[in-house]
């Protein structure tokens, strides 16, 4: 068992500096994830971090665990294989909004449906950052992107609702402004034995903010501060006041049987009193 006394040990310091632009929100989310791992006391040897492809998914390269940087959209499938093969491992998935909600959307809903014990943290920067600013399923209607030069005609997912409806047993949303909340949600996600999904709303000043004249990084953070409303507070607010706001906090927490546990129970049942294999 390797619990860590120093959070620095959770980073591959020799891989720094990172590739992210100045003002990018990715570092804040990675820090929140590491803090949650640290405070949850996870065994470093038994924790695996899996990511897809995108700016955000490069995070695994800087984290000092068994780490797996996979293919665009497919992180959850690799994570499913790891978790099912070795249920004793803690498996955390880091993914972008394009990675998770577009090319990987099918894997997201099916992993949620199985309620397999993965912790998926979706970095939502409202854009395809790595490829230079094309719109994603999380780019708000009307926004500019290189592939929506006249304004985005499409609508976004409410990805938290999608995860919940698909069967996730824990769902939360926070932002890179509300870091303590983000850490707490990720800790709860880790604690939850089942599929947990946390949407971390981020900022991409370079490929998104600039094109949409949203200002620099501090300005974008300020926007998050002003437009996020905690779900508990929202319950007491007039709908009128919530019109241009979005909700953060614990969005859903339910009970459901976890997939790898069911599978282990099946194995135990089949092996109990089963005749020795006489092929």
């Amino acid at each position: 068992m390797q619990t860590t006394t120093n959070i620095e040990n959770l980073f591959r310091l020799n891989r720094l500096p990172h590739i992210w632009c100045p003002g990018c929100g990715n570092g804040i989310i990675v820090n929140a994830v590491q803090k949650a791992i640290y405070e949850s006391g996870l065994d470093k040897d038994k924790t695996v971090i899996v990511s897809g492809i995108g700016c955000s998914s490069r995070a695994t390269g800087y984290m000092n665990f068994d780490t797996l940087h996979t293919a665009h959209g497919r992180a959850i499938t690799f994570a499913t294989g790891i978790k099912l093969a070795r249920p004793e491992l803690n498996v955390i998935v880091l993914t972008g909004d394009g990675d998770c909600a577009a090319i990987g959307g099918n894997h997201l809903i099916h992993a949620a449906r199985r309620n397999i014990d993965l912790n998926v943290i979706m970095f939502n920067n409202s854009i395809y950052g790595m490829t230079g600013g094309q719109f994603s399923p999380m780019t708000p209607h009307g926004r500019l992107a290189t592939t929506s030069p006249y304004g985005n005609l499409e609508r976004t997912f409410d990805i938290c609702k999608l995860a919940e409806c698909a069967g996730a047993s824990y769902v939360g949303r926070s932002t890179v402004y509300h870091v303590q909340l983000l850490v707490n949600l990720i800790k709860k996600a880790i604690e939850n034995k089942g599929f947990s999904f946390v949407e971390a709303i981020s900022i991409c000043p370079i490929s998104y903010g600039r094109r949409n004249k949203l200002g620099d990084a501090p300005k974008m953070l300020e926007w998050l501060k002003e437009h996020a409303v905690n779900i508990k507070a929202a319950q007491k607010m007039e709908p009128e006041k919530l019109k241009d706001k979005f909700l953060i906090g614990e969005m859903y927490h339910g009970e459901a049987p976890e997939y790898t546990q069911l599978y282990d129970e099946l194995i135990a049942k089949l092996q109990k009193g089963a005749e020795k294999d006489v092929r």
Binding site: L68, T77, F78, A79, T80, G81, I82, L84, A85, N106
Partner: peptide, 22 residues
């Protein structure tokens, strides 16, 4: 051992590579 029916073949090979890494 473990069997899982995935949502498509991409997921199938992804899970296989993940399991192989363990």
């Amino acid at each position: 051992g473990k069997f899982i029916q995935m949502e498509d073949e991409i997921a199938g090979i992804g899970a296989v590579v993940g399991a192989a890494l363990t």
